[in-house]
Design a binder for these strands. Structure first.
Lengths: 162, 162
DNA sequence: TATTGTTATACTCTATAACTATA
DNA sequence: TATAGTTATAGAGTATAACAATA
């Protein structure tokens, strides 16, 4: 793909800007995480697992906003890399509880470090005011909790999105 | 249909925020443009054609940052809707010059209005300071030309406003 | 009957490779 | 040889539908 500077007619369209910002970040993310053997979405799965105990596949999927069928493939991949493990819930044998392995926890730590560095580089063109403002604006637009307090977050019941 | 608030562990990850902001905008865009019979990407093609004369398919593709093979399908679709027309360039018969039809120009005007309204609604949760800052930050991150001092959608078309 | 995980399948979006017609 | 458009194809990424096990 040729990466021209976008023409002015596109430069104030939110759709264009969000899409291309996301694409650029995804590239940088892949580059930064490649040596850790995971991609940004897999890292997000690990981070969710680290932040909550005893999550079923469906609950993880709910937190990430993805479908349970998509989740199967993620867990397959991460289990293949020995970063997570499935075990049947004794309370409800329909559920797979997904847990980080020790290796997974270690990988998460290292990859998170790389991700933070990547994000810092990515935002480097912005003044610190603008960077803060960007993140706050995106949190507001996505309904994300702002860092003031812990989210009263309902336990992952919710719908995957389109 | 209810969308969970993202858990705190994801709410400060740029990848998550950009992706989900983009997904939400895409939904709103589709809803706003549905009655006009086009989607946001098709509208962007029309806007590029309106802003530049005598563009070949390849040149349009370059401005939009998409592949020429992808462009073929866009032009096929838009030509099927009688919004654009192809004609062979007399100077270089390998090239297809793509032009808006009168219908296409009219559709562009109406759909642009709907898009602007949609973006205004989308940004409504933000203070005008934050909205401005968001757009400026995204322009900076994508290498888009900034039109200095321009408020997002304050007037307009999100298009060229010199 | 409803829910969880799974599989098979399909659909969207986009790119790569190969073909054609021009240059 | 190189370029513009086209076609065929493939590969992400994700969703829907159907099914088995379990509740």
């Amino acid at each position: 793909m040729t990466r021209d500077a976008p023409p002015e007619v596109l430069s104030s369209r939110l759709g264009y800007l969000l899409k291309h910002a996301y694409l650029r970040l995804t590239e940088e993310s892949a580059r930064a995480l490649a040596s850790h053997g995971i991609d940004g979405r897999e890292l997000a799965v690990l981070a969710v697992l680290d932040a909550h105990d005893e999550l079923s596949q469906l609950e993880v999927a709910g937190k990430l906003g993805i479908d349970r069928t998509t989740m199967v493939a993620f867990v397959d991949t991460l289990e293949g890399k020995e970063l997570v493990e499935r075990r049947r819930s004794p309370q409800d044998r329909r559920k797979n509880i997904v847990r980080l392995t020790p290796t997974g926890r270690e990988r998460l730590r290292d990859a998170e470090f790389a991700r933070q560095e990547m994000e810092r580089r990515f935002l480097a063109p912005l003044s610190s005011t603008d960077a803060t403002c960007l993140v706050r604006a995106l949190q507001s637009l996505t309904g994300a909790p702002t860092s003031a307090g812990k989210a009263p977050d309902a336990d992952g019941d919710g719908g995957p999105h389109p």
